[in-house]
Each structure stands twice: as structure tokens, then as C-alpha cells.
Computed example of a mutant assay.
Amino acid sequence: MKKIHWDEGLSIGDPGLDGEHRQLISLLNRLIDLIDEAPDAEQVHRILDELEQLATAHSRHEEMLSATAGEDFKEEQRREHSDFLSAIIEARSQLRSDDLGGSLIDVTESLVKLLINHIIDQDLDLAPLLAEREVKNHSLAEFLVLKFQKLSFVRGLEMLVVISLLPMLIFAGMIMYQSWQEA
């Protein structure tokens, strides 16, 4: 079975979540490594334990970050997290001691499919929500620049000129108003 390689196209823009995805993939790759070796049931169960702990923490983290999403999105996300955790728990019962290598292949393929589908179908939809939240944490000028970047390049340049001229115009207006009062 081939290993999973992280691609930046799977990145959702949150370093914490992307790091957790990389760790989940790394744990699945460790299971794939065991397939090629003579797998030991104890090693497999240790990796599944780590996978379950990380998936639980990741689910909480992701659900916390998606608090501003719509109910349908949050419900779908909860369902996918629950399915992945259930698959990890079921994996223990699906491992057969008489054919540990063969059953490990089936279990690992199932877990890989669930994780990759979750990242592609659900988490990439979370990226715009995180970007909006990120914008709210920045200054007004950064907010405007990010909004204008969504416009065409020429329109964006025009807006950047307006943004840079706006403080100068306000300052000139204040000077003119003060001079008018003194006159």
C-alpha cells in the first residue's frame, strides 16, 4: 500500500488544523509501514490509540473553530468526525490475529479514505470561514485590502490608491477647516 503524502492543496489556512491533519496522516502512514513489515498486534493497537486520541482532540478543535458556520455545516462536520472515530474504534475488532496483515490493509484503506474525504469535502469548506474570522482580527486597512483583493487587479489598484489618499485628504480637510476658523 502506498503512503499518503501531504499536499499544500489540502491546507485550509489554519496552522493548527493543518498540523493536526499532517499528524493524522503520519499515523496512518505508520500503519501502512506496518503492513510491509511483520505487524505486531500491540504496535497496531498503540497506533490506533494515538490515532483515536488525536482524532478526538482534532474534532473538538475543528468544531470550536466552525462555531460561526451554519447548522447544516456543523451537523455534517459532527457526523463525519463521529464516523471517523467510530471507524477507528471498529478497526480494533476488525483486526484478525490469524491474518493481521490482510485485515490491517482493509482497516487502513478505510481510515485513509475517511480522512482524505473529510479533509477534501468538509475541511476545505471551512477555509473561507477561518479566513473571515482572521480578517476580523486585523486592522481596518488590512480588512479593506483583503476585501479589495477579491476584486479585479485593476479595481484593486484603484482602491489601494483611494485607501492611501484617504488619510491625506482627511488631514488636508482638517487643516483647511482650522485655517477657516482662524480666518
Rank of each mutant, 00 (worst) to 15 (best):
I4V: 12
W6H: 03
W6S: 01
D7R: 05
G9T: 08
G9K: 10
L10E: 04
P15D: 10
L17E: 06
D18R: 01
G19D: 12
G19P: 11
E20Q: 15
E20V: 09
R22P: 02
R22D: 02
I25G: 07
N29I: 13
L31D: 09
D36S: 05
A38W: 11
P39N: 10
P39C: 13
D40Q: 10
D40M: 09
D40H: 07
A41L: 12
Q43D: 14
H45I: 15
L48Q: 09
D49L: 08
L51A: 13
Q53D: 13
Q53M: 11
A55D: 04
A57C: 09
A57W: 10
M64N: 08
M64I: 14
M64S: 08
M64H: 09
M64E: 14
T68P: 01
A69W: 03
E71G: 04
D72L: 07
F73M: 03
K74Q: 13
K74L: 07
E76Q: 15
R78Q: 13
S82I: 02
D83C: 08
F84K: 01
F84R: 03
L85Q: 15
L85P: 10
S86R: 09
A87G: 11
A91T: 15
S93N: 11
Q94S: 14
S97I: 15
L100H: 10
L104F: 01
L104I: 12
I105G: 05
I105H: 06
T108K: 11
E109S: 02
V112W: 14
V112S: 10
L115N: 13
I116P: 03
N117G: 15
I120A: 10
L124I: 11
L126T: 14
A127E: 13
A131E: 12
A131C: 09
E132M: 12
E134A: 12
V135F: 12
N137V: 07
S139T: 08
L140F: 01
A141N: 00
E142M: 04
F143N: 00
V145R: 00
V145W: 00
F148Q: 00
Q149A: 03
S152F: 15
V154K: 03
G156Y: 04
L157H: 01
E158I: 06
M159N: 00
V161W: 01
V162F: 00
I163H: 00
S164Y: 00
L165G: 01
P167Y: 03
P167G: 05
M168H: 06
I170D: 01
F171M: 11
A172E: 04
A172Q: 04
G173W: 06
M174N: 06
M176H: 03
M176Q: 06
S179T: 05
